[in-house]
């Protein structure tokens, strides 16, 4: 077991890297470090598959800008971590990090009548 552990780790690392190389952030856990210790298992999210299914081509639909709790969809913000603007403990009218995820995902799923809504549908054990 002692000898096989480094090998296993190496295999895992290669697999992870190649996965990342094949498709950009394909399987993603929405678990930004800003949350610290998590209460629930992170929502797992397959970026490309989701967008294909949902027919999303425009990044700004999710990666929006804005301030003071108002969404601005004129400038795309992909590449900027959500936690950069949405703080865990929000100040003023801005949306907190948890609500940013919850409201954006669930809001869209509700509007489209498709996609998970209840807690355990994203936070799978």
């Amino acid at each position: 077991m002692k000898r096989s552990l480094p090998i296993l780790l190496a295999v895992a690392l290669v697999a992870a890297l190649s996965q990342a190389a094949l498709s950009q952030e394909n399987i993603k856990s929405l678990a930004p470090e800003a949350f610290g210790k998590l209460t629930r298992p992170p929502a797992r999210f397959n970026h490309d598959q989701h967008n294909e299914k949902a027919g999303l081509t425009d990044c700004v639909v999710c990666h929006h800008g804005g301030s003071d709790g108002k969404i601005d969809r004129s400038a795309s913000t992909e590449g900027t971590p959500c936690a950069e603007c949405h703080k865990v403990k929000p100040a003023g009218r801005s949306t907190g990090l948890m609500n940013a995820y919850h409201k954006q995902c669930i809001g869209c799923h509700k509007a489209r009548g498709k996609g998970p809504l209840a807690c355990g549908q994203c936070h799978k054990r």
Binding site: A118, G120, Q121, K124
Partner: peptide, 14 residues
Amino acid sequence: LAYHQAIDYDTMIV
């Protein structure tokens, strides 16, 4: 049961 996602979660939560 819903919290532990036992049996069928979707039915259980409703």
